[in-house]
Nucleic acid binder design. Structure first.
Length: 658
RNA sequence: GGGCCCGUAGCCUAGCCAGGAUAGGGCGCCGGCCUUCUAAGCCGGAGACCCGGGGUUCGAAUCCCCGCGGGCCCGCCA
C-alpha cells in the first residue's frame, strides 16, 4: 500500500482524467479552462446510457461564440478515445465513457480489500470533536441520541479521511443544574443509589423532584401571600391567583408521576426537607455553586459524588452504544486551574471589555456589527448579538465564559487545527457569542477554526420533554423498546438460532436502528420522533443495510474461496454496480468534508438497493458461466466490504447472521 | 418586535452551499413473486404544478427579493 499513485477514490481518478483531457482539447480550440475548474463541472448524466461522466459546455460555448452543441461535437471529435475514456457529444454536453474492463479491474481490485473507502485528504488535520456533553444530572435522552450519533459518526468519518481525530466529553459540573441536584441529594443524606437502580436515572428523578418541590414551595408561598392580603381586604389579585393555582396543579401532577419512581422514603424526606426548610433553597443552591467554584472541600466532595454517579450511568449507556471518548474534561478543572480567571483577566484588557447591566461583559454586540468578522467566523445570525456577560454578581462564572476557556484549552491540549462542537440549534446565539469573545480576546485562529455543528431538535409528538420536570424519554428505555421489537422479529424468523445469537442480533438491530435514524437525515432538519417508525424495523433502513450485508456474506461463505477475477464478460447490470462501488470513497470523503454523515448513509442505501435488485435477478453461485460467476462473486465481495465499512463509519457494527 | 433554521406526493426523505439534460428513494396503498445463493428481499401500478409571488439566467427545487406556515433563540440558565 501507499505510494503517490495509489488510488483511493476511483471516481475522482477517472473524473480527473476526463477534466485533464477536456482541458487539453479546449486549449487546442483556443478556450482556456483549467482541469480543476472542469472537474467541478463534471457530473453524472441523468441516464447512464449517455455515459459515466458529463461535462456541460454552455459557458465555454458562450465565451467562444459557438453554439453549445457545435462545441460539444468538436470537443468529442477531437477527444475521441484517449486512455480509458471515450468521448461523445450530446446536446451541449460532452459525455465520457470509461472503458469497462479498466473500470472493473481497477474498482474490484481495490474494493476486494476490507479497507476500501479509506480516502485520505491531501492535508490531514488535527481535529477535536466535542459531542454529547450532557449535564451530569440525569440519563441521556432522545435529544442526546442525535448528538451522540452525529458526533460519533463524524469522528469516525473524519478519521477515515485521514485526519487525526480526538473525541471529548465536556462535563458541566459547575453549572446551576448540578448544584440543584447536589442540594437535593444532600437533603436526602447523600445515600447510595439502590443497587437495582441505574445511578443516572435515579439521580435524574431526584433532580426533577428537587426542582419541582422548589418551584412548588415558591408558588405556595405566593399563594399564601395573596390569601393573606385578601383576608385583610387588600386588592383583588384574582387573575394571578388563578394562574398560580393552575401551576400548582400541574406541579402536583408532575410530582405525582415521579414519586413512585423514587419510593416513599426518598419522596417524603425530600418533600419535607424542601417544603419545610427555614432557609431559601435558592440561597442554598447558590452557596453550593460558589463553594464548588472556590474549591471548598465539602462542596467538592458533595458535587463530585453526584457527578461521578451520574457519569457512571451515562457511561453505561454510551458503552451499550459503543461510543467511547478520548478525553473527559471537567468544567471545574477550568475554574480551579485558573484558566477561567485568565480569560477574564484577558477580557479586561480587551478593547471590547464593557459593563453591561452592571456586570463585566464583552461587547459582542459592537464586534458583531463588523460584517467581515461575522463572515470569517461563519456566524450566520443577523441582527444584534447581545453582550456576553462574564460573571454573575456573586462572582461565579457562567457557562459561556467557561466555554471560552474550554475552547482555548481544547485547541492547546490537542494542538488542534479545528475544533468541532456538536450542539443543539437552540445554542446558536451563545455559541456565536463565544466565537466573538474569543476573537475579541485575540484568539483569532481559535475563533475562526471553531466549528459549531448544529443539529435541530428531536421532538416527540404529544410529549413536551423537560428534564427539569422529569419528563424525558431516556435513551436506555428507547433501546430497550427497540430491542424488544427486534427480538420478536428474530424469534419469528430464526427460531433455529441459540438464545445468545438471537439476543446479539436483536441488540445489534436496536442500536443500528437508533443510530441510523439519527444520522441518516440532514442535521438541520428537525426530527419528529415517532415510536411507530423507530420500532418498525421494516421501515428503517439500518436493518435493511444489515440484511443486505448478511445476504452478501452468506453467498461468499457458500462460495468458499473467491476465484480469480475474470473480466472478459461484463454485462450492464454488473457494470452499474461496479460504478456505484467506484463512487463510494468519494461519498465517504464528501461526508467528511461537508460534515454530512447522511451523504454516506444515502450512498450505502443506493448500493444496497442495486445489489438486492441484482441478487434477485441473477444467479451468482448457480451461474454456469465461470467468468460471470467470478465477476459476480467479486462484486458481492466488494458490496459486503463497502457496506461493512460504511456502516462502521456510522458507528454501526455488522452482524454475520440475521 | 428582531434574528436563525426548516418547508419537495397522504407521511418521511435525497438533491439546494459550488444553477445544467426526464426531481431520486422509502413508508403507506393496489397487483404479482419463495421445492434453487437469507422474502427484513424483488417486480409492476397509482401518487409531486419542489409552500406562494416576483426577479436574475441560454437554463432555477437550487441564486436574489417579498410574503406564508412550523420550530428555535433573544436570561447574571445551559
Amino acid at each position: 500500500m501507499g505510494g503517490a499513485d495509489t488510488i483511493y477514490d476511483p471516481y475522482t481518478h477517472y473524473a480527473l482524467q476526463a477534466a485533464r483531457n477536456a482541458s487539453t482539447v479546449l486549449a487546442e480550440l483556443g478556450i482556456n479552462a483549467s482541469p480543476d475548474e472542469l472537474l467541478q463541472l463534471i457530473a453524472e448524466p441523468p441516464d447512464p446510457r449517455l455515459g459515466d461522466l458529463g461535462l456541460p459546455l454552455f459557458r465555454y460555448a458562450r465565451v467562444a461564440g459557438k453554439r453549445p452543441d457545435e462545441l460539444a461535437r468538436l470537443v468529442a471529435e477531437k477527444h475521441g478515445r484517449r486512455g480509458s475514456l471515450a468521448a461523445e457529444a450530446a446536446g451541449g454536453y460532452v459525455n465520457f465513457r470509461i472503458d469497462t474492463v479498466d473500470l472493473a479491474e481497477t474498482v474490484l481490485k481495490l474494493a476486494g480489500r476490507p479497507g476500501y473507502g479509506y480516502n485520505p485528504a491531501e492535508k490531514p488535520l488535527r481535529i477535536v470533536v466535542e459531542h454529547t456533553s450532557a449535564n451530569p444530572i440525569h440519563p441521556l435522552h432522545i435529544g442526546h441520541a442525535r448528538n451522540t450519533a452525529l458526533g460519533d459518526a463524524l469522528a469516525r468519518i473524519l478519521s477515515n479521511r485521514g485526519h487525526w481525530v480526538q473525541t471529548r466529553y465536556y462535563v458541566d459540573d459547575t453549572g446551576r443544574q448540578v448544584a440543584v441536584l447536589a442540594y437535593g441529594y444532600r437533603l436526602l443524606g447523600e445515600p447510595e443509589p439502590p443497587v437495582d437502580a441505574k445511578p443516572d436515572e435515579w439521580l435524574g428523578h431526584i433532580y426533577a423532584l428537587t426542582n419541582l418541590l422548589i418551584e412548588l414551595r415558591g408558588v405556595r408561598a405566593r399563594v399564601a401571600e395573596i390569601e393573606e392580603r385578601a383576608r385583610r381586604g387588600g386588592e383583588e389579585e384574582a387573575e394571578e391567583y388563578r394562574r398560580l393555582v393552575e401551576r400548582q396543579d400541574r406541579l402536583a401532577a408532575d410530582i405525582g408521576r415521579l414519586w413512585p419512581r423514587v419510593g416513599k422514603d426518598v419522596f417524603d424526606r425530600l418533600a419535607e426537607a424542601i417544603m419545610g426548610s427555614p432557609r431559601d433553597p435558592e440561597e442554598e443552591i447558590k452557596r453550593i455553586m460558589a463553594a464548588y467554584e472556590r474549591g471548598e472541600d465539602w462542596a467538592k466532595r458533595l458535587v463530585g459524588r453526584v457527578v461521578e454517579l451520574a457519569l457512571k450511568g451515562i457511561r453505561m449507556t454510551l458503552d451499550k452504544l459503543g461510543v467511547r471518548f478520548d478525553k473527559w474534561d471537567y468544567e471545574s478543572m477550568l475554574v480551579w486551574s485558573g484558566l477561567v480567571d485568565k480569560v477574564i483577566a484577558e477580557a479586561r484588557r480587551s478593547p471590547y471589555y464593557t459593563i453591561y447591566k452592571g456586570a463585566e461583559a464583552i461587547d459582542t454586540s459592537r464586534l458583531a456589527r463588523d460584517k467581515e468578522i461575522r463572515r470569517r467566523l461563519g456566524i450566520t445570525l443577523g441582527g444584534d448579538i447581545p453582550p456576553l456577560i462574564l460573571r454573575r454578581s456573586d462572582g461565579t462564572t457562567l457557562y459561556t465564559t467557561k466555554d471560552i476557556a474550554y475552547t482555548i484549552y481544547k485547541f492547546r491540549d490537542a494542538s488542534a487545527d479545528k475544533v468541532i462542537n456538536v450542539i443543539g440549534g437552540e445554542q446558536r446565539l451563545p455559541q456565536a457569542q463565544v466565537k466573538l469573545a474569543l476573537y475579541a480576546l485575540g484568539y483569532r485562529r481559535e475563533a475562526e477554526n471553531l466549528v459549531t455543528y448544529i443539529y435541530e431538535m428531536v421532538t416527540v409528538p404529544g410529549h413536551k420533554m423537560s428534564s427539569r420536570r422529569g419528563r424525558i424519554i431516556t435513551l436506555d428505555w428507547l433501546l430497550d423498546q427497540l430491542y424488544a421489537r427486534a427480538r420478536e422479529e428474530v424469534e419469528e424468523r430464526r427460531p433455529d438460532l441459540s438464545e445468545r445469537e438471537k439476543d446479539a442480533i436483536a441488540w445489534s438491530m436496536a442500536k443500528a436502528a437508533l443510530r441510523y435514524q439519527m444520522v441518516s437525515v440532514a442535521p438541520l432538519r428537525p426530527i419528529s420522533f415517532s415510536f411507530e417508525k423507530a420500532l418498525s424495523l421494516k421501515e428503517n433502513s439500518a436493518p435493511y443495510l444489515l440484511y443486505t450485508y448478511v445476504r452478501a456474506r452468506s453467498v461468499l461463505r457458500k462460495a468458499g474461496e473467491t476465484p480469480v477475477l475474470r473480466t472478459d464478460k461484463i454485462p450492464d447490470p454488473e457494470r452499474r454496480l461496479i460504478w456505484l462501488i467506484a463512487k463510494y470513497p468519494r461519498a465517504a470523503a464528501e461526508a467528511a468534508d461537508d460534515l454530512a454523515p447522511e451523504k454516506l448513509a444515502n450512498h450505502l442505501v443506493l448500493i444496497a438497493d442495486a445489489y438486492n435488485e441484482f441478487y434477485d435477478k441473477y444467479p451468482i453461485l448457480r451461474e454456469p458461466d465461470e467468468s460471470l460467476r467470478s465477476l459476480r462473486l467479486h462484486i458481492t465481495l466488494a458490496v459486503s466490504n463497502v457496506v461493512r465499512h460504511g456502516l462502521g463509519l456510522l458507528g454501526i457494527q455488522v452482524v454475520e447472521k440475521i
